[in-house]
Nucleic acid binder design. Structure first.
Length: 732
DNA sequence: TAACATTCCGTTTTT
DNA sequence: CGGAATGTTA
């Protein structure tokens, strides 16, 4: 009966899925069917009655991966998977801490700080202690605290010999006290608290150890020290830990990921064997050969060689441009050709770069050429200012001691509570050792500001009263209404998007109640607020339109595309300057390049430019060393198709290695909206337009696509960004 | 308090 | 160069 589950698996995949009850490391190469193995393993355990859904714990890094796993599992098994413990490290810890909040010494409705909130909390702390934030930048303090927590250290565990570090440790301690007082918990704290809870409380630990006989971990190479120890603690001696990962795709060392965990796993978890998944179902041969050859240059690998039963496929195309502009022109041309002549969907083409700053030239050219594109990264839904404000009201209703939330909205929208009043309030609360809310409701501040404060306290208290027992969506609606946030944004020009987002928040609450709630088994407001912190939402509202995918190489991990462009392959950019210091840095960059290459199914372009505008200066970069580390026989130097290479330069022809002397795009070619070039939103860069209020102007920039296009226009009165959706623009 | 000027900074990023 | 984050002024 398990045959249908196992059908179509290759021998290694099958071996992994059907392993006996023991810990094992699965080295899963790019495109080797990792997620399939993971989910099939779970289904297999359940179907063969080696475990019930109750006995399984599966950990991922992103909510997306967790959701994907649940979806696939639901398709494989005739059971309700929604109650299963499948989630992110942070999500699962949150669940545990909510269940055992008393043992964890937390208020029932503790709130979760995202990085933004945490930084704000630190700034506040520094201010209250009168500490110079020049000498102790909040960012560094935050980093100090988080990296220590991620190493499992509390302030009390640390010692220092220099006064500077001693001060940092004091700040660490003071920060934790502040959080405890306010009933808030940051991301690292979520894990550390949970770890401490389990290690301190033996009964609880044994309970979960007995329950989770099978623990499965995705992206194991990305675990940090604390996550590793958490797994080790929870697994105990009996559990079988199924760790899936790829050391060659470890690209998050900079944020604490420790590849060493993979090497130590065998010893610490008594793993009997390592299973290698090396058959790649994604890419053609040349692409894999390039990837294999590149990654071979790294030391201390666990070792792995990808292969495919498909053919070699096309050579990898290498293009050298004279400038970043020319590079972008080339890419735009090739994308159009792929789309028009080969019928490739734009959404099946990715444009990758090392750092976000590189997207701007590319976007500019794409917009001008009328190629729809979507940029990944940037602000996400729950990170937007207006949403944060709304959430702060909600947080205050759930927990009045949340000073961060209090300060965020006490005078937003403006209600006559100035900096002076707030200072007085803070002094009073500090003196009395109570929260801002308590101080305010106790009438700690007198005068006009004091009266306004009373009104605010009253507003929140009323809202709290009025929303008791209301369904989540109605609760949110009510709070939005009394906060007057929407009115505020409606009254100010150019903020209509914020109004839309606030209305969308009500939908998000309704959706949460319907879908997520049963899965997370954390109810009501606290659940929704956790959800908002732990899952910040989509980067951009997907317009659903077929669009070229622009993103950093980091963001591309786990994805695949028919065609991939890796741009900016220059020394200093990719590999990045700041990786030159240590050998590990370069190795991580190389792994990054490995990730980039292995995203491509059929076609891969590697491009670099001799000169590039960076930080307002022209930089001249040599071709990336990674280009030279690739086997030359899988590469093909290309020029542009639409404008042949200047033959007088091209002494060597097209195929002598990857170097080419293309000068084809050097010439100006300012705008070419003539013949067949479609133009986004009916406008193009350089075009003269007229606006009712600002008069005549010229389009000098753009961003977004579809119904989200914004144009940068230089008017006599100055340069403005206008949304095509709202601004009335006419060609002039 | 909002609009405007100035300064500073500049991988990668999920939770 | 361009943005974010301050600082300054009406």
């Amino acid at each position: 009966m398990t045959e249908s589950l196992l059908a179509g698996l290759n021998p290694e995949q099958r071996a992994a899925v059907t392993l006996p009850h023991e810990s094992a490391l699965i080295l899963a190469g790019a495109g080797s069917g990792k997620t399939r193995v993971l989910t099939t393993r779970i289904a297999y355990l359940i179907q063969t009655h080696q475990a019930s859904p109750h006995n399984i714990l599966a950990v991922t890094f992103t909510n997306k991966a967790a959701k994907e796993m649940l979806t696939r599992l639901a398709a494989m098994l005739p059971i309700n998977v929604s109650g299963m413990w499948i989630g992110t490290f942070h999500g699962l810890c949150n669940r545990l801490l909510r269940t055992h909040y008393r043992d964890a010494n937390l208020p029932q409705l503790f709130q979760i700080l995202d990085s933004q909130d945490q930084q704000a909390a630190i700034k506040r702390l520094l201010k209250s202690l009168n500490i110079d934030d020049e000498k102790y930048p909040p960012k560094s303090v935050q980093n100090f605290i988080n990296s220590n927590k991620e190493a499992g250290h509390r302030a009390g565990d640390l010692s220092a010999h220099d006064p500077f570090t001693r001060r940092l440790i004091e700040l660490f301690a003071a920060y934790d006290e502040q959080c405890q007082r306010e009933g808030v918990v940051d991301f690292a704290e979520l894990l550390l608290r949970c770890y401490e809870l389990l290690s301190r409380n033996e009964a609880l630990r044994e309970h979960y150890r007995n329950r989770f006989t099978h623990i499965l971990v995705d992206e194991f190479q990305d675990t940090n020290r604390l996550q590793y120890r958490w797994l080790h603690l929870l697994a105990g001696p009996q559990a079988a830990v199924f760790a899936v990962g790829d050391d060659d795709q470890s690209i998050y060392a900079f944020r604490g990921a420790n590849v060493g965990n993979m090497r130590e796993f065998e010893r610490d978890f008594n793993a009997r064997q390592i299973i290698r998944l090396e058959q790649n179902y994604r890419s053609h041969g040349h692409i894999l050969n390039a990837a294999n050859a590149l990654i071979k240059q790294n030391s201390e690998r666990l070792g792995k060689n990808l292969w495919t039963s498909e053919g070699e496929g096309e050579p990898i195309r290498v293009f050298e441009a004279a400038s970043d502009n020319e590079e972008a022109d080339f890419i735009v041309d090739e994308v159009k050709n792929l789309q028009r002549e080969e019928g490739v969907n734009l959404s099946d083409i990715a444009l990758l770069y090392r750092s976000n700053a590189q997207s701007r030239v590319l976007e500019h050219k794409l917009f001008n050429a009328g190629v729809p594109y979507r940029v990944y990264g940037g602000l996400r839904f729950f990170e937007r200012q207006e949403i944060k404000h709304a959430l702060a009201y909600l947080r205050l209703i759930a927990n009045q001691n949340d000073d961060g939330a209090f300060l965020r909205v006490v005078n937003f929208p403006p209600r006559g509570i100035g900096a002076r009043t707030i200072e007085n309030l803070q002094d009073a609360s500090q003196a009395a050792g109570v929260s801002l809310w308590q101080a305010a409701s106790g009438g700690a501040v007198s005068g006009r500001g004091g009266a306004s404060l009373q009104a605010f306290v009253h507003l929140i208290a009323q809202a709290r009263e009025a929303t008791q027992g209301l369904p989540l969506a109605e609760l949110v609606e009510h709070v939005l209404a009394v906060s007057t946030l929407i009115e505020h944004y409606e009254a100010s020009k150019g903020e209509s998007e914020r109004v839309e987002n606030l209305n969308e928040l009500v939908n998000a609450a309704a959706a949460f109640e319907q879908e997520v709630r049963q899965e997370e088994e954390i109810e009501g407001l606290a659940g929704f607020l956790s959800h908002a912190s732990l899952e910040a939402g989509e980067h951009q509202a997907g317009s659903g339109q077929d669009a070229l995918q622009l993103m950093t190489v980091h963001a591309a991990k786990g994805l695949e595309f028919y065609a991939v462009f890796v741009s900016g392959l220059e020394e200093g950019l990719f590999p990045h300057d700041q990786s030159f210091n240590d050998a590990d840095g370069i190795q991580e960059e190389r792994r990054l390049m490995y990730v980039a290459i292995t995203r491509a199914r059929r076609r891969l372009y590697l491009t670099h430019a001799q000169s590039r505008m960076l930080h307002g200066q022209v930089r001249y970069g040599l071709a990336s060393r990674f280009l030279e580390e690739l086997p030359q026989n899988v590469l093909k130097a290309v020029g542009s198709r639409s404008r042949p290479m200047a033959s007088s330069w091209n002494t060597g022809g097209w195929n002598d290695g990857w170097r080419s002397n293309s000068r084809s795009y050097d010439e100006p070619a300012p705008f070419r909206p003539k013949d067949d070039t479609p133009v986004s939103g009916g406008f193009h860069i350089g075009q003269n337009v007229s606006h009712a209020k600002f008069g005549i102007g010229v389009v000098i920039g753009s961003e977004g696509y579809g119904d989200d296009v914004r144009l940068q226009i230089k008017f006599a009165v100055g340069t403005k960004w206008l949304s095509l959706k709202y601004a009335k623009l006419d060609p002039a």
